[in-house]
Amino acid sequence: MIKLLRVDHRLLHGQVAFSWTQFLGADCILIANDDVAVNELRKTTIKLAKPQGVKLVIKNIADSIEALNSGVTDSYKLFIVVESVADAEKLVSGYKEIKQVNLGGIKAKEGARNISKAVNLLPKEEVLVRKMVDQGVEVEIRIVPGDKKIYAKDVL
């Protein structure tokens, strides 16, 4: 079962490891990212940040979609973390069971608009967020679990 898909440019770090995993009651974290899957240093850092008692799986985007569709993830309370809206949209398009996307942190960059809190979107990312919203996915902004949800459709 998918508990949540979160977009966070820092991937697995304090907020995610401690607050979100516990809040969701997740027993497995999937880091879906093309670079981390082949970057041993980033991989090691992420493994060391893993909360105790939780399984951590790191896969590239294509393999993640394949695993999700194969059913091997069904027995887990799964918390997926990706680093960009583009990656989130690929997962949402590739696996129809994802009904909720949380935008946590997306770095400010050239040409990006601050839509709320720590979330900065490029025009092409706004298009992708709209696409997910139009597909019936709840896209919401929260930094930590206790925050009130801000719905992307209200701030785009």
Partner: peptide
Amino acid sequence: YCNLTMQKTKAEDEDF
């Protein structure tokens, strides 16, 4: 001591 921790960590990749 993170230097040592990283040296010691031969964490296997986990899968589902």
